[in-house]
Nucleic acid binder design. Structure first.
Lengths: 310, 310
DNA sequence: CCGAATAGTTGACAACTTCAACTATCTCGT
DNA sequence: ACGAGATAGTTGAAGTTGTCAACTATTCGG
């Protein structure tokens, strides 16, 4: 309950804060001979090449009447020209004149400078954290059913720690696992990294616009010839239900097959329901299971196998 | 260079995005009989108890003239009363009437609801990440010379991974250390966590409004009776120069002394200049040093000692 | 081919922004 | 003690923005 109100207060504080930031940025526009609305309109027309008034109205959230008057004012200033639409003569085609193009470019530079002014006091690492945090805020607030470019890539420095952090936190929240699990996976990741390059191993992060959406890795199974082990499959809660887990497993299976492994195994817990479905879909079969007590919970461990030779 | 332009583009995208969010939130205010400016003014007066017009003008970024007219409109609506200032009769005292208080409370509830609407689609973990990201954006953009409440607290689940992530990344950026360092510290943190409770050990995070500003821990030194070892002192770049490192070390030394240790040792590298100064200031003396090759760099390790018995 | 929907224009009015002129009051240095 | 200059607030004027409603021209569906 107090969490709730704290969060709300923090969000409101941020809203007030960012209202100021936006105000400061817009201030800079007053050095031009255009008003803020005019500048936004020119920018929008420049971005789309040629549009209609109604599109501008909905995109900028303006009243159609205001759009109309604003456009004609820009026509008077020779920034914009309006021609009747070709197929639909209600619709007008709005485009920038040569002058308007120049203005648009100038405004863009000014906006860039304003944004650069925000970044200016920060060092490289600070900038990266700022941009990452902004992207996260956007993604969380926009609900993000957006299907952007998802890339599988190797891990970068520090990201083994990041994966430990996220998974320890997640499985604690979802299943109550304690710090025993955190130290276990910290060692698993360290062992992965320190293992020799052969027999083949690989780790991928699912990267969504710079944000880690999930990960998995493949190592040679201990003591078993020509057998690969799939480990640490995980998908961020906000990215679930998009098939990322399945893609990661398929990717890993393909890698193992190409690397010459004959068999693939994995060890999981029966409480991880959605993971189980993914393994089944990838062709794994349950070989045996075993009760055990770990991470402060009663678990049912499962051992799954996939034959890679057919 | 491309990084630079990418960051600028990301910041501009965020600005546009958040302009919309703020617009949506303000939309809700139209259900009241007050305009946005009036609402903001009432809220601001409510927050400060009693102010002057000029303070309101600068706080809300409004023209003094507009503030004057707005205030008198609110006086007409019986939300606000204005009395001449006591000591300075140019200055007026602006306060809320009983009606104004009620209005202010009502507006606050509406703002809370609007903010809650943003949080509503998110689960607990999503909310926490959103709030954290917002706080980070604020801190990075406000330059944060602010001295808020700094607390030393034990680590929570996942934070050993977080510390691994941050330190691996940092020391890679600053000194070029490779993943050998990352796996080493991952194991060091895991060992810390799995060690028995006696002889005494402790780890603290410097917590600044929910954000990790730095950390350090103390363990019994291997093989040496009554000797404590200080390890993994680190301060986030954005929090440096505020004495946090020194406070962490002092805290650790005090703990070791209270826990009955007679001596304290630590192992560091000579390239970590500011850390060295902190150790000196805490009374440590350099016992010996030793060249070695680790983490893909040529290093000069240093062994420092502090006698706890005087 | 008619009624409904859509694109855009125009008028009216209240509120906001910006600038400049103006009064009253205070501060500071001499 | 006093005058120059700064500060707090008020008022006027002109232009811009936000909102609503009425209106024309055009297109679409049946």
């Amino acid at each position: 309950m107090s969490d709730q109100t704290d969060d709300i207060a923090a969000v409101r504080r941020f809203n007030r804060f960012y209202t100021r930031i936006i105000g400061l940025l817009e201030e800079g526009m007053h050095r031009t001979r255009f008003t803020l609305s005019e500048a936004r309109m020119i920018h929008e027309i420049g971005k789309r090449g040629a549009t209609s008034g109604s599109e501008l109205a909905s995109e900028l959230g303006m009243d159609p009447g205001q759009v109309s008057r604003l456009l004609w004012r820009l026509v008077d200033q020779d920034q914009v020209y309006i021609t009747p639409g070709d197929d639909d003569r209600r619709r007008s085609r709005v485009s920038l004149t040569a002058d308007g193009d120049k203005t648009c470019a100038r405004l863009n530079i000014m906006s860039d400078e304003a944004a650069a002014g925000l970044l200016e006091p920060l060092d490289r690492s600070g900038r990266r954290r700022l941009v990452q945090a902004m992207k996260l805020v956007m993604r969380l607030l926009s609900g993000s059913p957006e299907k952007g470019p998802l890339a599988f890539r190797p891990h970068r420095i520090g990201e083994l720690g990041w994966l430990t952090y996220r998974q320890a936190l997640l499985y604690n929240q979802e299943y109550g696992w304690n710090s025993e699990f955190e130290t276990l996976i910290a060692r698993i990741y360290a062992d992965y990294e320190d293992a020799p390059a052969t027999p083949p191993k690989a780790l991928w992060l699912a990267d969504f616009d710079g944000e880690v959406a999930g990960s998995v890795f493949v190592v040679p199974a201990a003591g078993e010839e020509k057998t690969a082990q799939l480990r640490m499959l995980y998908v961020e809660p906000t990215f679930r239900g998009k098939g990322i887990g399945g893609m990661l497993v398929d990717h890993a299976v393909k890698f193992a097959r190409n690397a010459g492994y004959r068999r693939m195994i994995l060890w999981t817990q029966d409480c991880l329901v959605s993971a189980r479905k993914i393994y089944q879909a990838a062709g794994f079969t349950l070989a045996r299971d075993e009760r055990h007590q770990s991470f402060g919970a009663d678990l049912n461990g499962q051992y799954w196998v996939l034959d890679l030779e057919n």
